[in-house]
Each structure stands twice: as structure tokens, then as C-alpha cells.
Nucleic acid binder design. Structure first.
Lengths: 230, 230
DNA sequence: ACCTGAACACCGTTCAAGT
DNA sequence: ACCTGAACACCGTTCAAGT
């Protein structure tokens, strides 16, 4: 219970004292989520951080879901300012859009899962956030329907990727101890190809690097879009 | 509180009466999740369905997270029996693996999000479940490292796709009313390409079909893998 | 209009006690 | 060994009352 202030006594806030506002509440909520994770972000905890009665929050946001919805906005707000770049091939522009999108989610790892699983938050925010993808693919000469499908594919990939990335703390993690063990403990012949691949990679020191994995996937996706639709 | 049985009186279960077991608990839990969603699946509710004291469950599973972990196993268990098929090109085998993986998750839409966001559940289960992907790509002639990256890309895509698909009830939903409205309400010039594409699609009746979107993405991914690594 | 206090209907889990 | 009952330390939210 760090940062807790005494609740006001009843009635209007004293003059000069910062009053509660949607923005102040969301800022405090984001801090809690970033520092301690989504489970720590309870309405009671949030109120205590703000030095306020739990119920006061409900005058600015209708419920807890709305708090997380507001946080989704906050996270994607950083993303809207990416400037058009016509000095690189459209393929590079597309990759840049994907990297920016990933970075926005990565800036608040504890929040990513919450955002990705909140339908209304995602759809609300994705709309205003995908323009760079659309622009790049438009420059690539794709038809509207193709642009639409391609963007969905890339965005879905990024979401799935972030699910994995934000679930793990480090940028790089050793699959070897974990994965090799598990594969070795499988009944013989259960997953022969998987076993062989994992052992092959084990030799070169099986570590997984998220940046490399992301770039590798972007290459595949861009190649695929090109081959399918240009 | 449908299906609730009277709790036993204290002591051992009467002879002949089905005793509590990990399996019976998980089956009941899956039923609750499928019927009423993850939020309804509380330990107390689960116990009441089983006609048992809430604490009895803890003798078979250490906590609530373990219950959901067990459910993840259950869902993926259906997947392990897919037979090798060498009568189709490796590209088709790869797509078939992806479709089977999606179907397994789709069979329990309410559980999908829970599974996807549970790191330990996913990693535990994915290992035994990805062999068909590995086999297909091996037949495609990719090197171990490339197989590894390609599988990660596809699986991440499927996860992201399922995030979207399971968040929405219907197989098909009309983007038009929602999306068109939202795009029209954007400040002029904010997202010109997105606006144009959405209006283009609006003309042909902008509905989104998950099956079509999934197949379209598979084509892109397979093409991309081919172009990048073969 | 904005904030508070008490209360309601829940949670997951620990712990000691029953048989 | 397996199950129970009571209790602990929480939740989100409603509602009536304060200023």
C-alpha cells in the first residue's frame, strides 16, 4: 500500500487541491499495472493510491472495465503520430508499421494481455491505429479486399506474438533446459520431427530471441503478401 | 445454481458413490466454462456443481490455476491423433495442421482466451501438439532453424486470430454498421487509406467471414514460407 | 456535482477438525 | 486419505446520505 493518501473527508474537495479526473485516474491505474500487474489493479487499490474513497472513481468511469478500456486508449495514443514515409519501398513501410505496433504494446507488457483480450478496447483502438498498414499496402498496389485481408493477417500475427512475448519476462530465454527436457521425456516416436529439430537447434545453443523471431515472421508475411497479391 | 448436489456429510464418501477425482472435477469445470464462461467457473461454483465442499477440490488440484491448466490439456488432447498424410503436398499438410489447431481451440470458445493467456498451459501443451506442423515443413525441405521459425510464425498467427474469433459470437459479423460509422466519424484526413478501403468494401457488403479470413492468411503464410525458405 | 460510509453478495485459500 | 466448517482477507458495485 505504497503511495496511499488519506481519503478526503466527505463533501467537495478543498480549493486548490487537485480534484479527481478521468485522466488522473487512468494515469494512476497505468502506473499500478506497469509496476505490479493487472491483478494489483483493483478499484479499491486504485482509490487508495489516489487518496480517495473507492466509490469516488465511479463518478468518472462507470466500472472497472471502463478503466481498462481507457488504458488501452492511452497505450495506443502513442502510436498515432507515425509520419508517412515514401522514401522506402512499401515492404519496408509495412514492416515499420508492424514494429511500431509491437513497440506500443511492448511499452506496457503487463497491459498487453488485457488489451488484446478486451474486444471493445481492441476494436475501438485498432481502427485508428492501422492506417500505416493500409497506406503501405496501398502503395504496394493491392486491391481493397486484399489490403483488408493482409492487414488482418499481420495484425493477428502481432497479437499472437505479443501474447507469447509479454507472457515471458526476458527478451531472450533459453528454451533448452525446458523444451529439451520435455521433448526427451516424450514417449518415443510421439513427435519425431519435433524431437529432431529441437536436438538440432540444441547443438547451436537453443535460445529464442523475440526480435529475431519477429523479423523472421515479418519477412515471411511480406513475401507471402507479395507472392499472393502482386 | 443448476446441477448442484447436496454436499456430503463429513467423512469418507459412502461406498458406491462416485468419489471426487481430478478427472471428474475437470469435466465439470469444462462444462461450466462451455456453458457459462470463465467468470462463472469459480471454485465455489465448481464445488456446488459437484455436490461437494469447496475445499474438497483442493485435495485433487492445488488451486484454481491448476484447474484451468488441466482444462487446456483436455482441449488439446483431441488434437494428438491427427495421422500423417503423405498423399498431399506439404503445403496442404501444413494448412491441415493449422485448421485442426484452430478447430481444437474453437471447440471451446470460452476457454480459448484463458488457454492462450496462460503461459504454462500453452507451453506445456503446445509442445505435444505441433508435431504435424513440424512434419509438414520437414517434408517441404526446410532446415531445422527455418522449421522452428516458420512454426512459431504460424502458431502465433493462429493465436492472434483466435483472440479475435473467440471474442465475437457469430461466425460472420457485419463490420459495416460498426466500422463504417466509426471510420466516417474520424477527423477528415486522419486515416485516408483506411477510409477509402472500408468504403470500397462497403459497396460489396462489408461482412467479415472468419473462415475466409483464416484461409486467406494460410495462403499468405504458406506462400511466404515457400518464397523465403525454399 | 462530487465524494463518502456502510452494506451486499461474492471471491480464493488456510487451517484445524472430523471420520 | 479424504472431506468439511469456519474463518481470513480480500473483491466490484449499489444505494442513501452528506456538503
Amino acid at each position: 500500500m505504497i503511495n496511499a493518501r488519506k481519503p478526503h473527508r466527505s463533501g467537495r474537495p478543498r480549493a486548490g487541491e487537485g480534484r479527481l479526473s478521468r485522466e488522473a485516474i487512468l494515469r494512476a491505474a497505468l502506473r499500478i499495472v506497469d509496476d505490479e500487474g493487472v491483478d494489483a489493479m483493483t478499484m479499491r487499490r486504485l482509490a487508495s493510491t489516489l487518496g480517495v474513497n473507492p466509490m469516488s472513481i465511479y463518478h468518472h468511469l462507470p466500472n472497472k472495465a471502463a478503466v481498462f478500456g481507457g488504458l488501452a486508449e492511452l497505450v495506443f495514443a502513442d502510436l498515432e503520430s507515425a509520419p508517412p514515409r515514401e522514401d522506402v519501398p512499401w515492404q519496408e513501410e509495412l514492416k515499420a508499421a508492424a514494429r511500431a505496433y509491437r513497440d506500443a504494446l511492448r511499452a506496457h507488457p503487463n497491459l498487453a494481455l488485457q488489451i488484446l483480450s478486451d474486444t471493445s478496447a481492441v476494436s475501438e483502438v485498432v481502427v485508428t491505429t492501422v492506417e500505416p498498414f493500409y497506406r503501405a499496402l496501398d502503395r504496394g498496389g493491392l486491391a481493397s479486399r486484399q489490403i483488408f485481408e493482409a492487414v488482418n493477417t499481420i495484425v493477428d500475427f502481432i497479437h499472437g506474438f505479443m501474447l507469447g512475448e509479454t507472457a515471458v519476462r526476458a527478451d531472450t530465454f533459453e528454451l533448452a533446459p525446458d523444451l529439451l527436457d520435455r521433448v526427451d521425456n516424450l514417449p518415443a516416436g510421439k513427435a519425431p520431427t519435433l524431437s529432431r529439430v529441437v536436438r538440432d537447434l540444441g547443438r547451436e545453443g537453443l535460445h529464442y530471441d523475440f526480435d529475431t523471431g519477429f523479423e523472421s515472421a515479418l519477412t515471411v508475411l511480406v513475401h507471402g503478401i507479395q507472392k499472393t497479391w502482386t
